[in-house]
Simulated assay, not measured.
Amino acid sequence: MNIGIYLYDDAEVLDFSGPFEVFNTAIRLSDIQWNIFFIAEKKAMITARGGLQLLPHYGIDQHPPLDLLFIVGGEHNDQLNKTNVIDWIGEQASTTNYVATVCTGAFLLAQTGLLDGRSVTTHWQDICALTNDFPALNVMTGKRWVEDGKYISSAGISAGIDMSLHLVSRFVSQELANKTAKQMDYVWCR
């Protein structure tokens, strides 16, 4: 399975590093063959929040086919105005088996129109903005993650870890998800 994590300048670090750790820990504890990689608009250094610099594995113009597209949050407003990025997210979302968002990553997926009429969540601080900006969504509050068909969204930052553990349980088994949480010394909020 190919898991592509889309990130950008000022992305929230735990939004991508937490899920990345969950999936990699699950790989170490089992015999699953997952390929996890970072994708950005271009294959060039990005600077996430706090000044963390990261070189993505791929740009949006050239990457392996995706089974799971993972879209992280952060300072996302510039991304909403990039037609090439939103078009790419829409194209990938229509062909992948699953699409997951963490925090304000939900705004990027919502911009494609694919979430219209679906249930979704985001960081508690952005619930009103998501509701106002995208009135066709059923924005849910007080949820760590929300699953609606192949679209799965999580609340802010650390909730992406909880959602990723849920994905491990869904893709492989509850037992592996429990082992992964235990190995990470993480108390999983289900």
Results as ranks from 00 to 15, higher is better:
F37T: 04
F37R: 06
F37K: 09
A40Q: 01
A40F: 01
A40E: 02
K43H: 01
A44V: 11
M45E: 11
M45R: 00
A48Q: 00
R49G: 12
G51L: 04
L52H: 00
Q53N: 13
Q53R: 10
Q53S: 06
Q53P: 05
Q53A: 07
L54Y: 07
L54V: 14
L55R: 06
P56N: 07
P56G: 05
P56C: 06
H57S: 04
G59T: 13
D61M: 06
D61E: 11
D61F: 05
D61I: 06
H63M: 13
P64Q: 12
P65I: 03
L66W: 00
F70Q: 01
F70R: 02
F70V: 05
I71F: 10
I71W: 06
G73A: 08
Q79D: 05
N81C: 07
K82M: 10
N84D: 15
V85H: 08
V85R: 10
I86E: 11
I86N: 09
I86Y: 08
D87Q: 14
I89Y: 12
G90A: 10
E91K: 14
A93N: 03
S94P: 08
S94K: 09
T95F: 12
T96C: 15
T96Y: 11
N97K: 14
Y98H: 12
Y98M: 13
V99W: 02
T101H: 01
T101C: 13
V102H: 01
T104W: 11
G105D: 03
A106N: 10
F107T: 04
L109W: 00
L109C: 01
Q111G: 06
Q111K: 15
T112R: 03
G113K: 11
L115Y: 08
D116R: 06
G117T: 08
G117H: 11
T122A: 04
T122K: 05
H123F: 14
Q125S: 15
Q125D: 15
D126W: 03
D126P: 01
A129L: 09
N132R: 05
N132W: 04
F134Y: 14
